[in-house]
């Protein structure tokens, strides 16, 4: 009897070390290629060039970089947040009913419908956006349809069209963002709706709750974690995105923060202000995420 007990103890002792061995490679990788780069990004944002001829930057605690960056790119930052905010809202409005439909009305087609939602993931992001360029073009099918239905006057007056165009306006950029991030909103909402015990809904109906109040008091609260997770998964990449703005926007709506940062780093070599702006973006979003996790926990993000 004593022998297996001893072996048990030993395996437990070894077992206690196993999880730490398993996490070390990934944690080391994340430290070197995520934490350290964020620190170098921060240092770069506070650096100056000693003179024009040198490529290197000196770390000088140059906080002025930030006020300069805000002067130059504050508008870009604001525009990105507005675009991302509107797109996220539209994503919720579209994704929720679709997810609800799949979860409660999908029946035996549920998995197939869910699979269909994943298909855009496997088609190039760039080409999907270029496809919208063809669809929304001045002689393209969407405008043809609108003109045939004689809706152009109405759309123009509510500001959804500008001078008879949709392509190359901020409306097209927001539409593109909404389109591209819709699956990221839909999947978490579906997951949280699917978890709801159907008996709860039946119970509410048995107690003569009209559907509206069942939805408000049972379904909606239980699906909120999915909405929150989807909001983060949509809003965060949408604020940094510049592909939709580049392909679908006009000169003004092309000026989003992602475009500014990328061109400063890759083409114009003004690293400190670009680093500053990306750091500000990261700080704002981290603050939002912390508030979120405070209320919702990190579990639902997966």
């Amino acid at each position: 009897m004593a022998k297996p007990e001893k072996a048990d103890l030993q395996s437990q002792r070894g077992g206690r070390r196993i999880p730490y061995v398993l996490i070390i490679p990934a944690m080391a990788f994340l430290f070197v290629f995520f934490i350290v780069p964020i620190i170098t990004l921060f240092k770069t944002s506070l650096s100056t060039k000693p003179n024009r001829l040198v490529a290197e930057y000196d770390f000088t605690w140059e906080w002025d970089n930030y006020s300069q960056a805000f002067d130059r790119f504050g508008g870009h930052l604001l525009r990105s947040f507005v675009f991302a905010g509107v797109a996220t809202l539209l994503c919720v409005l579209i994704a929720y009913p679709v997810a609800y439909f799949i979860a409660f009305k999908g029946g035996r087609w549920r998995n197939v419908l869910l699979g269909l939602v994943m298909v855009p993931f496997f088609t190039s992001f760039l080409l999907r956006t270029i496809a919208w360029k063809s669809l929304l073009a001045d002689q393209g099918p969407v405008l043809d349809l609108i003109r045939w239905l004689q809706l152009d006057g109405v759309l123009e007056s509510v500001g959804l069209m500008q001078d008879g165009r949709i392509l190359n306006t901020s409306i097209a950029v927001i539409g593109g963002l909404t389109y591209n991030f819709l699956p990221f909103m839909l999947l978490p909402i579906y997951v949280s709706l699917e978890k709801i015990d159907a008996r709860l809904i039946d119970a509410a109906a048995d107690l003569y709750s009209p559907f509206g109040s069942t939805f408000r008091k049972v379904i909606l609260p239980l699906s909120l974690p999915g909405v929150f997770a989807g909001t983060l998964l949509t809003f965060i990449p949408a604020t940094g995105d510049f592909i939709n703005a580049e392909f679908l926007g006009d000169v003004e709506s092309k000026r989003v923060i992602g475009q500014a940062v990328q061109s400063q780093f890759v083409d114009l070599n003004d690293y400190p202000s670009a680093a500053g702006m990306s750091f500000v973006l990261m700080a704002i979003i981290t603050a939002l995420v912390l508030v979120y996790t405070k209320f919702m926990g990190t579990e639902d993000l997966a």
Binding site: L30, P37, M282
Partner: peptide, 24 residues
């Protein structure tokens, strides 16, 4: 803590990730 380390890269906009790797 481990959860946090895994979630933060996921909630970092791609431009920030790209920019920080660039500076490194």
């Amino acid at each position: 803590f481990i959860n946090m380390m895994l979630v933060i890269p996921l909630t970092t906009p791609e431009i920030v990730m790209g920019a920080s790797l660039f500076t490194l």
